[in-house]
Amino acid sequence: MASEEYVERVLALVEQIPPGRVSTYGLIAEALRHSLGSGGPRQVGAVMALHGGGVPWWRVVRADGTLPDSHGPEARQAYLGEGTPLRRSGAVDIEAAVWLPPLDPATVPGT
């Protein structure tokens, strides 16, 4: 179970992702690992599953640009509305859309 601080930091980072851009579970985990020393992509995914409804959850994708199938239709509408670059498959074009969270602990929210 993630600490309250970890949950707050994940959600704060997700809120920073600009419209039309995405980050990955792994990139967010890496940014928090630099400042908190723990966590991984699965922990970020668990935070998003339990607490991510109030943030732009569709902006956090797997490393291959996909989301779980259950999120597809709603996320696709958000991507189209925000102009997020997509591949023909419907997955996000990571190379064109990636947003890198800050790795400097002084710039991560809550530090």
Rank of each mutant, 00 (worst) to 15 (best):
R9W: 13
R9M: 03
R9K: 14
V10E: 02
L11V: 05
L11S: 05
L11M: 06
A12P: 10
A12E: 13
L13W: 10
V14Y: 14
E15C: 04
E15T: 09
E15N: 10
Q16P: 02
I17T: 02
P18K: 02
P19T: 04
G20D: 01
R21A: 09
R21Y: 05
V22E: 01
V22C: 05
T24L: 02
Y25C: 06
G26E: 11
L27K: 13
L27Q: 03
I28P: 01
A29Q: 03
A29K: 13
E30A: 14
E30S: 15
A31I: 09
A31G: 00
A31S: 15
A31P: 07
A31C: 04
L32V: 07
L32S: 01
R33F: 09
R33W: 11
R33M: 09
R33I: 05
L36I: 13
L36Y: 10
L36M: 15
G37R: 08
G37F: 14
S38A: 10
S38N: 12
S38M: 10
G39L: 15
P41H: 09
Q43K: 12
V44W: 08
V47S: 02
M48K: 01
A49P: 10
L50K: 14
L50A: 15
L50Q: 15
G53R: 03
G53L: 12
G54H: 12
V55L: 04
V55N: 06
V55I: 05
V55M: 07
P56V: 07
P56D: 14
P56A: 04
W57N: 03
W57S: 11
W57M: 03
W58M: 08
W58D: 04
W58N: 02
R59G: 04
R59S: 03
R59M: 01
V60Y: 10
V60P: 07
V60F: 03
R62S: 12
A63I: 03
A63W: 12
A63V: 15
A63K: 06
D64G: 00
G65N: 06
T66I: 02
L67W: 09
L67V: 15
D69Q: 12
D69T: 08
D69N: 10
D69W: 13
S70V: 11
S70M: 08
S70W: 13
S70I: 14
S70L: 10
H71D: 10
H71M: 15
H71I: 00
H71R: 09
P73L: 07
P73E: 13
P73G: 09
E74A: 11
E74Q: 12
A75S: 09
A75Y: 08
R76N: 07
Q77V: 08
A78W: 05
A78V: 14
Y79H: 11
Y79I: 04
Y79W: 10
L80S: 08
L80K: 11
L80Q: 10
